[in-house]
Amino acid sequence: MARNRDPFTQALTSLRERIHTGSLSGGAPIIVQDEAARLQLSTTPVREALARLSGEGLVERASSGGYVATRLDATAARDRYAMHAHYVHIALDLTRNALGPLRPPVPCVGAQEPGLAVGRLFETLVCSAGNGVLWEAFERVCGQLDVLRRLEPRLFSDLDQEAADLYAAYVDSAEGRFQAAAARYHERRVGAAGALAALVCGGERTNRSHPSQ
């Protein structure tokens, strides 16, 4: 592993990526000494990284001590998508109050996959609302949703069209068009929360059967 980052950033980046990809199964204990050995670090930056991830809602304290990766069951998945929708709605209200019919410029996403493109669009809207507390809460729930979003293509076959429709609605001046498109985006995911959580659990069982080296 390249030593081009400080130990804390190394540990934080590695642990966050393993959680987002499902390599660290929800509910499984995270052993500080094992992670430190894997990363060839001392235990201090690993503990600091886990404390940060706890604040992000990606890990939680175990009743017996230490940390476990947060498990996303159907209820947790539904609630997180619902909160994402709520934060976007708040951002739309703040932007409308500040700019009237205008909106922040649409982000340039090039050839990004649809999930990333839509994520950039929502990030632009929420960041431009100018409310630091809203942005922090939005970032937190986005991080918690990452593992679910990676599985959305397995349920939804029209993500490219959905992304195109959202972008078209965003630049359209018609009152309420983007709000309606964003509501449809979130409603289908809230409705599919149980299926997405099941896919996460299926991946976790696979990871436990075939642990990464």
Rank of each mutant, 00 (worst) to 15 (best):
S63D: 12
V141Q: 03
E204Y: 12
P101W: 05
A168W: 07
A192P: 07
L199Y: 03
T70H: 13
P7C: 02
T70I: 12
L94F: 09
S209Y: 01
S14A: 13
N131A: 06
A82P: 09
C201Y: 11
A181I: 00
H89L: 05
Y167K: 09
E35V: 08
A2F: 10
A137M: 08
H186T: 12
R120N: 13
Y67D: 05
G100Q: 03
E136V: 08
L148M: 01
G100F: 01
P153K: 02
A62G: 13
Q10A: 11
V109Q: 02
V88M: 05
D158W: 11
A168N: 12
E162M: 09
A163W: 06
V46M: 06
A198P: 13
F122N: 04
E204C: 15
T75V: 11
R177F: 07
Y170P: 06
V109D: 07
S42V: 01
D73M: 07
I31R: 13
C201M: 14
T75Y: 11
S25I: 11
N97R: 15
L72G: 07
S63T: 11
H210P: 00
C142Y: 00
D158E: 15
P29T: 06
A195C: 03
L12W: 13
R80N: 10
N97D: 09
Q179M: 00
L99I: 04
L53I: 01
V190R: 06
L94V: 07
S25D: 08
P101A: 01
S63R: 15
E113V: 02
P105I: 00
L148E: 12
G132T: 10
G55K: 04
R78W: 04
V147A: 15
A98K: 13
D165E: 11
R103A: 02
A111M: 02
M83Q: 14
A77Y: 13
A181H: 00
T43R: 06
A91E: 11
E60W: 11
A76T: 12
S173E: 09
A174N: 08
A76F: 05
A98T: 07
I19S: 04
G202D: 01
D34R: 09
A82Y: 08
D79P: 10
A98E: 14
G130V: 08
S23H: 13
G119M: 06
C108Q: 14
